[in-house]
Every structure is written in C-alpha cells, then in structure tokens.
Simulated assay, not measured.
Amino acid sequence: MRKKIIAGNWKMNKTVADAVELANNVKLELADCKEVDVVLCPPFTALKSVSDVVSETLINVGSQNMSSEEDGAYTGEISHGMLKELFVRYVILGHSERREYYKENDFWVNKKVIKALEKNLRPILCVGEKLEDRENGNTEKVVEVQVREGLKDVPASAYTELVIAYEPVWAIGTGKVATSAQAQEVHAFIRGIVKDMVGAEAADAVRIQYGGSMKAANAPELLSQPDIDGGLIGGAALDATSFAAIVKAAL
C-alpha cells in the first residue's frame, strides 16, 4: 500500500515571520501525523526557520527548486548541499511555473532529478499539460514526453524515493480542477508509462500526486481514486486549517 503524501508549495509567499507562524499552526494540527507524509515547501529564505519549527515532528521540509550543479558560478541558484544543511528532504522539480516563466526544459529537469537522487534527496517531478494541449487531445502526448524525459536513466530501485506530481497547468491557481475521473485517468496513464519504462514493481511503488487546485472540499473524492497518492497543494497550503483538512482527507 502506497503511503499518501501531501506537500504544500508556498511559492513566493510568506516572509520569515509569516512562514514561522504558518509552520507553527500546521505543527499544532499535524505534528504527530504518521499515516500521511506531510511536506512543507517554503521560500528559500524561510527554509531554516521552518526546519527549526518542525524539527521534532514528523513533518518534512521541501525546497521549491534545486540546481543540478554541485557549486560554482551560478548566480541565484541553490545546491543540494545547501539544502541538506537545512534538513530539506524533498525538492520540487520541473514545476509548470519554472517551465513556463524560466524556460526549464525536460533536459535540465532530468539533470536535477538525477542529482537529487544521487544526493539522497527526494524529487517531486512535476508534469502536466496546458489548456490548449487538453483541448487538442494532446494530454497524453505531452505528459508522456515529460515523464520519459524527466525520469530518463533513473533506475527502477529509485522509484520508491521519488514522487511524480501530475499538475494540469490549466487547473493551477485558476480555481478549475480536473474531475476525479479525469485526474485518475492521467494518473493511471503515468503509472503505465513507468511500468513500460522500468517494470511493474516500480510502477506499483511510485507515488503520484495530483497538483491542480486541490482543496479541502474536493480532496476526499480525488484522494479516493486508486492511482492518486496525494496532493501538491498551492493556495490552500497557505492556510493551516485548509492544509490540515486536506491531509486528514488522505487518512
């Protein structure tokens, strides 16, 4: 049985003081949650402070990005070593906003995934189609390329350590959400791709999250689907009560 994972992507929100307050509120609700893996992904500036808040709990800390390089002249980047020093466990890679606004392509996303796994960090690989892709019937084509290229050269043994987040771009921050049937269909398709790439055992083990406007109201139905193993939460993660309700829906 795959353990559900709910990760809160705070994006470019929260000062350090705000992040500490939010983390403390989440801690009050979920500090002892054993049945679901809970991950908080604050901005880089708040990683240490949030790590300190949850250090004696079961809550994990994640980063919103990571360089594929060890160190060097890469202005504005952050390395795996810097993240591990702050007790970061997960890294979000290939988020649609990184792909769209900063032109990250599958080649670079794959390099980051490989580096994260090499350094014992758990990548959350984001994949998903834009609205025009879905309307033109290209959802599967787009998603398959992103999965195959993003996970290129990743061995079957590593699939227990990574997470795939299916995030239909048209549903992120728009209030729109894929129906549970639509989401399940793509999640099952992704699992089938993994099976074709590295075998049934890895496909059965890999966790696949849904990442498109999941909220407390729709979380129970989405999380009840057989191939949806959690959520990558955006806006709802900025409120501790809403985020906790989503986590509890995964129990």
Results as ranks from 00 to 15, higher is better:
residue 53 V to D: 05
residue 44 F to H: 11
residue 107 F to T: 14
residue 76 G to D: 10
residue 49 S to E: 15
residue 78 I to M: 12
residue 44 F to A: 13
residue 71 D to R: 14
residue 49 S to G: 00
residue 104 E to M: 09
residue 93 L to M: 07
residue 39 V to Y: 04
residue 61 V to C: 01
residue 102 Y to M: 14
residue 50 V to D: 02
residue 63 S to N: 06
residue 101 Y to F: 15
residue 49 S to H: 13
residue 63 S to W: 07
residue 98 R to G: 02
residue 92 I to H: 04
residue 79 S to E: 12
residue 47 L to E: 05
residue 70 E to R: 11
residue 47 L to G: 00
residue 66 M to S: 01
residue 75 T to A: 08
residue 98 R to I: 06
residue 83 L to H: 12
residue 50 V to R: 11
residue 107 F to N: 10
residue 74 Y to V: 10
residue 94 G to L: 04
residue 66 M to D: 01
residue 94 G to C: 08
residue 59 I to L: 12
residue 90 Y to I: 02
residue 81 G to C: 01
residue 79 S to F: 09
residue 63 S to V: 01
residue 63 S to Q: 06
residue 36 V to F: 07
residue 69 E to P: 00
residue 61 V to Y: 04
residue 81 G to E: 11
residue 39 V to M: 02
residue 79 S to W: 10
residue 33 C to A: 11
residue 89 R to V: 09
residue 90 Y to C: 03
residue 62 G to A: 05
residue 79 S to R: 12
residue 72 G to Y: 04
residue 41 C to H: 02
residue 91 V to M: 01
residue 103 K to V: 02
residue 37 D to Q: 13
residue 103 K to I: 03
residue 47 L to R: 08
residue 92 I to T: 01
residue 104 E to F: 07
residue 33 C to M: 15
residue 47 L to Q: 02
residue 60 N to H: 14
residue 44 F to Y: 15
residue 73 A to Y: 04
residue 87 F to I: 00
residue 45 T to M: 12
residue 71 D to I: 03
residue 96 S to A: 14
residue 86 L to M: 15
residue 80 H to G: 15
residue 59 I to D: 04
residue 60 N to T: 00
residue 35 E to F: 03
residue 49 S to Y: 12
residue 87 F to G: 03
residue 85 E to L: 09
residue 90 Y to V: 04
residue 54 V to T: 09
residue 107 F to K: 14
residue 34 K to M: 02
residue 78 I to R: 10
residue 76 G to S: 03
residue 50 V to Q: 05
residue 101 Y to C: 07
residue 67 S to F: 04
residue 36 V to R: 01
residue 64 Q to N: 05
residue 36 V to N: 07
residue 63 S to P: 06
residue 48 K to S: 15
residue 107 F to Q: 10
residue 103 K to M: 07
residue 34 K to L: 13
residue 69 E to K: 13
residue 103 K to A: 13
residue 89 R to Q: 15
residue 84 K to S: 13
residue 40 L to S: 07
residue 105 N to A: 09
residue 68 S to M: 11
residue 49 S to K: 08
residue 62 G to H: 03
residue 81 G to F: 10
residue 71 D to C: 06
residue 69 E to A: 13
residue 72 G to L: 10
residue 75 T to E: 08
residue 50 V to M: 06
residue 99 R to K: 14
residue 83 L to Y: 11
residue 53 V to M: 04
residue 44 F to C: 11
residue 62 G to S: 05
residue 100 E to G: 00
residue 41 C to T: 02
residue 60 N to A: 08
residue 101 Y to Q: 12
